[in-house]
């Protein structure tokens, strides 16, 4: 009988965390920020079909970076949980906090119980009736939850992006200013500011009744950014929003 090598629990956890961090760092970034009319999501994502930002429920949305199949799995679970709660109780009983808790428990269990942790970082955002009621929960691969204010940057160059956001963000920012700031911050991360065609943009619009999530199409986006419409992307190698792009 062979004696298995002893590896300390600290080392196992550290190795898993390093693995997950490296995976996330390879991907493109996402910025989530509060503006006066709601919550804005800006993702570097050339794909029109594989989303990094999605609707979960009336006032709740989801943004993610990392491995597409893993965060897609979490997104679908979130939609199922939210719809189940809304159907069992009432639409008003679906909250961002309970969703963030379920994600935290799930990510934590996956991190400790399985050999391979999820290489994802996600934000659960809930738009309130006033700016003060807005909620931004940031969840990492090990199930840690942080309750954020103002803005969140995730992905490869999150620190560089967060530095620009910390400098430029202020309460009561308008949609246009918020969008320009987010694009400038993403540019600081990747070196060049992304064009309208490379962005996925959505908002949780506080003023809407019931379903508040709306995507901002490329025409409206170019208008807001003051860029001419780039037209359809030239055909080329299909890009996925997966890490490593």
């Amino acid at each position: 009988m062979t004696v298995p090598f002893y590896v300390s629990p600290e080392q196992i956890i550290k190795d898993k965390a390093d693995y997950a961090r490296k995976g996330i760092a390879r991907g493109r970034s996402v910025v989530v920020l509060q503006f006066d009319g709601g919550i804005l999501f800006v993702a570097e994502n050339p794909s029109r079909a594989l989303h990094k930002v999605s609707e979960i429920y009336d006032r709740i949305a989801f943004a993610a970076v990392g491995k597409y199949n893993e965060f897609e799995n979490l997104r679908v679970a979130g939609v199922r949980l939210a719809d189940l709660r809304g159907y069992s109780y009432d639409r008003r009983d679906v909250t961002g906090r309970s969703l963030a808790n379920a994600y935290a428990q799930t990510l934590g269990a996956i991190f400790t119980e399985t050999a391979k942790p999820y290489e994802v970082e996600i934000v659960v955002a809930e738009v309130g009736s006033t700016v003060d009621d807005d909620q931004l929960y940031r969840l990492t691969f090990d199930g840690s939850v942080a309750d954020e204010r103002g803005f969140v940057a995730m992905g490869g160059q999150a620190d560089d992006i967060a530095a620009v956001l910390a400098d430029g963000w202020r309460p009561g920012l308008g949609l246009e200013d918020g969008l320009v700031l987010a694009v400038r911050a993403l540019g600081a991360g990747s070196g060049t500011a992304p064009s309208a065609g490379q962005l996925e943009v959505a908002v949780l619009d506080r003023s809407r009744p019931r379903r508040t999530f709306r995507r901002i199409g490329s025409d409206r986006l170019a208008e807001l950014l003051g860029q001419p419409d780039p037209g359809p992307e030239p055909p080329g190698v299909p890009e996925s929003p997966d890490s490593g792009a």
Partner: peptide, 24 residues
Amino acid sequence: PEPWHGRLPSAFMAPGGSSFADFL
């Protein structure tokens, strides 16, 4: 409605299936 604690059960994470009634 929620007979579980902690981690979401595997039914939530199962791929495929876009019907709420089937999920229920």
